[in-house]
Each structure stands twice: as structure tokens, then as C-alpha cells.
Simulated scan of single mutants.
Amino acid sequence: MSPVFAGYWHEPPERTRLGAPTVVTVGAMGHPSEVTPETHARRASSFGAQAAAYAAERPGYPEAAVRWVLEPVSGRSPLRVLDLGAGTGKLTASLLRTGAEVVAVEPDSGMLAELRRALPGVRALAGSAERIPLADGSVDAIVVGQAMHWFDLDRAVPEMSRVLTPGGVVGGLWNREDDDVPWVRGYQEIARGWAAVRRRESVAELDLGPRFPALEQETFRHFQRRTVDSLAATLGTHSHVLVMPEEERAALLDRVRAYLRAIPETAGEFDLPLVTLTIRATRA
């Protein structure tokens, strides 16, 4: 199974190969450095303490992207969907608007608590992609928002296949800032440094194995209304920032705010242009 592409579309590069003894990340000044799997795990578990900020600041997903993922099973009634690695429920809310029956699974207790607070009517369970707490063949679709790059696919793919019905679909969505816009590219150079040059890694390299032989992809453009402070707050919810020492994190966010205040495009309220990379694969 080929390596997951490590969040090049929102988080800095994490893995060069699943199971490798070291991973690549971004150092203090945006330079590549090697870290241990323990650091990778620390970043993966860093979101819970900032669950409320994550819920408030991270963008949602375009309705068209969500419906595209579900298209292969859209005629099923009821349509049963699992939001896997559901976080605070950003994608869960979008899935509910399609009329599907949705169950959410999330490993982080802080993120799960925020999801339950925001969406009290949703069945929300503690669990992970590697140990999904559902019965065999219990869902028609599994949709993953901004999380598949954290999965151990060697363990997660058999689990996803197990809980899907025949012909069920797996989909993934990743939001990224649209760096075709010059000011966004300048922001990324400050916020992510070296990581920004890896963001266009092709999702075609993602291989879910013989259970999901045909991987399709599509992109959807949208935007999020932002201010200087809210965009800095969004950056503050990214794992490479969450695990920084406090002084280093504060200095990075100050540089970002200074840049945004200095250019006319972002001096007041502004639209942050986003691209949602979306993939789907049908269970053989």
C-alpha cells in the first residue's frame, strides 16, 4: 500500500512512508527536519485542547463536494453515512444537510465533546479508523474530512471495508488555501514555510489497495469570510503550531498578523479563497 500523502493539502508533510521510523515535518523557521513517530503522535493528538477554537475557526466543506462523494450511493434509502475522524463535527453538519443518517466516530475526547455539544442529536462514538465501533456492513458511505492523513491505512482500510455495505463508498475531503492568489501564497510562505512547496503532491499516489481499486478525485472552490485575527486564529489550530513552544507560536502568529495588516487585500474583512480536494473510491 502506498503512503498516505500526509496532509499536504492542509497540514505540513508528515510521513514519507507508512510505518517509517522517522517522518518529515517543519522546523521553527519553516525548514525541513526529522522527528520521531512520537512527535507525529503528539501532533495527531494536539487538537482536543483547542476543540472550541477548531470548531469556531476551521472552514466547512462545499455542499457540492459532499454530494459528489456520496453520489455512487445517493439512491439508497435510508442512506447511512459514517463521518470517520469527525473532529468537532464540521463535516457531520454538512452530511446531515443531505438527509443522510449519520454516525460520527472520533478518537479525541475533547473534539468529541465539542461535536456532541454542537450536534446533540447525532450518534457520536469514541473510536478510530483503526478500530471502528460499528457492525459489519452497517454503513453505505464513509466520509473523512481533514483526517485521512492521520490514519494508519494498513489497519484502517480493512476496517473501513468491514463496516461498508457492498458497493459502499469511501470519500475524503481536504481544504487548502488557494495559493494561485498572490497574497495567499505570501501568507503560506510565512505560515508554513517549506511545507507549502509540497502541497500539490498528487492524490493519485494514494492507494487504498484492492478493496478500493478505482480512486476518483475532484476539486471544489469556495471561500471563508475572515479578518486578520480570525485567520491567525485558524492557523493557531493547526497541529504544527499547536505543538510549538509558546514563545515561538506567538512570534509566528505576530508575523502573520503583521503581513496581513500590511497588504490592502486583507486590511479589513476579506474572503479567504479555498480549494477542497475531494476523493472517492467504491468498495469492490
Rank of each mutant, 00 (worst) to 15 (best):
A267E: 06
Y187R: 09
R255S: 00
R280M: 12
S161G: 12
T39F: 05
A44E: 11
P264S: 14
P21K: 00
R15Q: 12
A267I: 04
S94A: 00
H40N: 08
V103Q: 13
L274M: 09
R198M: 13
S2H: 14
P213F: 15
R76V: 07
M148F: 15
G168C: 02
A41V: 07
G75C: 01
P37D: 02
V4A: 15
D179P: 05
P182E: 15
G127T: 12
P182T: 11
H222E: 06
V243Y: 08
A104L: 10
A258E: 09
A251C: 05
E57K: 02
T22Q: 01
A118M: 02
H222A: 12
D108E: 14
E34W: 04
V203T: 09
T92C: 05
G209Q: 03
R42G: 11
H240W: 06
A65V: 04
A28Q: 03
L70N: 02
P12D: 11
I132P: 13
V228L: 07
R261S: 15
P245R: 00
D108P: 05
E159W: 04
R249P: 13
L272T: 01
M111D: 15
E71M: 10
A28Y: 03
P62F: 05
E14Y: 10
L153H: 03
G168E: 06
G30P: 00
S230V: 03
T227M: 07
S128K: 03
G167H: 07
L79G: 08
W194F: 12
